[in-house]
């Protein structure tokens, strides 16, 4: 229980694939408008998608949700979604970068690309969350976050619409928390407030 005490967190990254819309509605829907950290999300979407998912989530959630813009400085209380067909990365000055490098794990945007670049920037002050999805994108990224001293949360495979992404991560690393989706907002609140 001492594990995270005294830690201050700077950002949260979330990776999700199949079942993403429902999962993000639940998770982000449970966060308050004044949530104290910026949140970056990679959700696997088809290459020709527009910003519809961000617009939808923004209307359903109290926290502000938007599609990420290139060069944008990330702010607390805001959720940034990776646009379709671009990898989302983070620069050391906490601004958003894009790349059209080849798909990673058959995905662009790829969860691993975001997680690994965010781990480079935030090290132990980063929280990584891996949710439902097919395939294994995000596992390597979660391992890097963990190795850099960050906190990793994996959706309980039993609770996930598709369990292979969470399962794959759990085979690679020991998560700090394995929880059901509905409990993540409260868990985040407690972690960020230093109650855990």
């Amino acid at each position: 229980m001492q594990r995270n005490s005294g830690k201050t967190f700077k950002a949260i990254v979330i990776g999700v694939s199949t079942g993403g819309v429902t999962a993000l509605k639940k998770l982000l829907g449970g966060l308050p408008t004044d949530f104290p950290l910026p949140i970056l999300v990679v959700s696997h979407i088809s290459p020709d998608s527009d910003d519809g998912l961000a617009v939808l989530l923004d209307t359903l959630c109290s926290i502000h949700v938007k599609e990420a813009n290139e060069g944008e400085l990330i702010m607390p209380g805001t959720v940034y979604l990776a646009p379709a067909n671009y990898h989302l990365l983070l620069e050391r000055d906490s601004t958003i970068a894009f790349s059209i490098d080849s798909p990673v794990n058959f995905a662009r945007p790829s969860v691993d690309v975001l997680f690994e670049s965010a781990a480079d920037v935030y090290n132990k002050t980063l929280i990584g969350i891996l949710l439902t999805g097919a395939g294994n994108d995000g596992s390597k990224g979660m391992l890097k976050i963990k190795n850099r001293g960050g906190t990793v949360i994996v959706q309980d495979p039993v609770d996930a619409e598709m369990d292979s992404m969470p399962k794959s991560a759990l085979q690679l690393l020991k998560a700090d928390y394995v929880v059901c989706l509905k409990n993540i907002p409260e868990l985040l609140h407690n972690i960020v407030e230093g109650k855990l």
């Binding site: 990365l89 983070l90 620069e91 050391r92 970068a97 790349s99 490098d101 690309v113 670049s117 480079d120």
Partner: peptide, 9 residues
């Protein structure tokens, strides 16, 4: 060149 992508490459 921007660092994040350069570092990755």
């Amino acid at each position: 060149y921007s660092e994040a992508s350069l570092r990755r490459r």
